[in-house]
Simulated assay, not measured.
Amino acid sequence: MTRSVRRALIVALPFVLAWAAVLAVYAALRDRLPDPLATHIGSGGEPDGFTGPGAFLSVSTALILVPGIVAAAIAHRSRTALGAQRLLVATGYGTPAMLGYITAALLFANADVSDPAAVDFPLWHLAVSLAVAGAVGWVGRLLAGLDAPSAAGPAAGPAAGPAGPRLPLAKGEAAIWTHTIGSPVLVGAGVLTVVVGAALALASGWAGGGPLMAVGVLTAALSRCRVTVDRRGLTVAPWFAPRPRLRMPLARIDEATSREVRALDLGGWGYRMRAGRSALVLRSGDALCLRLATGKEFVVTVDDAATAAALLNTLRERVRTGPGRQG
């Protein structure tokens, strides 16, 4: 068994076990379940949402297995050891365990009830589900340690030259570089989240699926950004609005370079943070890499990063040398 396959199996394990447990409980109680089932519980512990047993099982399967498939695929392609991502793996174990417990507990609460509106589902089940998630998450953390990072650590990027690339500009000449970059992965994740949220909303009401749909819409909206280099430094903002934005002033930048990166090696898609590095990752490929005055690194994936780096170095040099400084 290859290391990548072993990683995928470790990550997928809790999702498969949670789904199998729910399926086993459903099969054991199938003849004792009402139609429809009470599937959403209000703040007082009384049912306020109902759906058929088949739809309930389908939605539960999607909620548990789809994230597991995505997580396993990412782990399979990643070259980063699970041991360096223990918190992420622990969360990945705890989440399906919590969902599996709540789903199975709902099925038991519905068993032998003639009127689903009379189902009793005490809210202490939520506390138990969190305890189960914590215990299973700890197991995931231990299993992640079996795939510890090598002593040498991840390969470092190429060393920047003493001067860095430059873009020739005449004295007093101004220049602006801008490029829009999108992420098909984040668009897909956003759409999938909206679909799952819609299914959950149909099954248990808008209170259950609405927030998930909102997260999906926000993810898709922020999946495309505009990266700009000008006399103010580097600015990254959503394609549809000037804010929210991320800005790196020239005074904070020591050197700009470019290199090829893999999204999974940076921790995945989106805004990622690790010791000594932060990154905005929208896809694998060309990336603009900034060595900051603090000694840390900031990376943003964008096409034509070499030109952006050269312009940043030229503008930064103008600011520090004084003459020719752009207002």
Results as ranks from 00 to 15, higher is better:
Ala155Arg: 13
Ser60His: 11
Val70Ala: 13
Ala117Leu: 06
Ile102Phe: 08
Ala151Val: 09
Val187Thr: 07
Ala203Pro: 11
Leu123Asp: 03
Gly210Trp: 05
Gly153Trp: 01
Gly164Met: 00
Leu200Cys: 11
Trp206Lys: 05
His125Asn: 14
Leu266Gln: 06
Val119Asp: 05
Ala156Val: 08
Leu130Lys: 01
Ala310Gln: 05
Leu264Val: 11
Thr314Arg: 03
Gly188Arg: 07
Leu311Cys: 03
Pro244Lys: 08
Leu126Gln: 01
Ala73Leu: 14
Ala81Gln: 08
Val319Lys: 12
Gln85Arg: 15
Leu202Ser: 15
Gly45Leu: 07
Leu222Thr: 13
Leu266Glu: 13
Cys289Pro: 01
Leu17Ser: 11
Gly324Pro: 03
Val191Pro: 12
Glu173Phe: 08
Arg6Asn: 08
Ala155Phe: 00
Leu266Tyr: 04
Ala55Ile: 15
Arg252Cys: 03
Cys289Phe: 02
Val217Glu: 06
Glu255Gln: 12
Ala72Glu: 10
Ser204Asp: 12
Cys225Pro: 00
His40Lys: 07
Arg32Asn: 11
Phe121Glu: 03
Pro96Trp: 14
Gly216Leu: 05
Ala275Trp: 13
Val319Ala: 13
Thr51Val: 10
Pro122Ser: 07
Arg318Ile: 00
Leu234Gly: 07
Gln85Phe: 04
Ala117Trp: 09
Val25Lys: 09
Arg316Trp: 00
Ser78Lys: 09
Arg283Thr: 02
Asp120Ala: 11
Ala174Met: 05
Trp206Asn: 09
Gly140Cys: 05
Ala38Asp: 06
Thr219Asp: 01
Asp254Asn: 04
Ala84Phe: 10
Arg262His: 13
Asp286Gly: 03
His125Pro: 10
Leu142Phe: 04
Ala306Leu: 01
Thr235Arg: 15
Ala160Ser: 06
Gly54Tyr: 14
Asp115Tyr: 08
Gly324Trp: 01
His125Ile: 05
Ala203Gly: 10
Tyr93Leu: 10
Val5His: 10
Ala127Tyr: 10
Asp31Asn: 14
Gly327Ile: 11
Tyr271Cys: 00
Ser183Arg: 08
Arg245Phe: 07
Arg7Ser: 14
Val215Gln: 04
Leu312Gly: 02
Val261His: 02
Ser183Thr: 09
Val136Glu: 06
Arg272Gln: 09
Ala155Ile: 06
Ala163Ser: 06
Ala118Asn: 07
Gly44Ala: 10
Pro14Asp: 11
Gly268Val: 01
Ala73Gly: 12
Ala8Lys: 07
Leu33Gly: 12
Gly295Tyr: 02
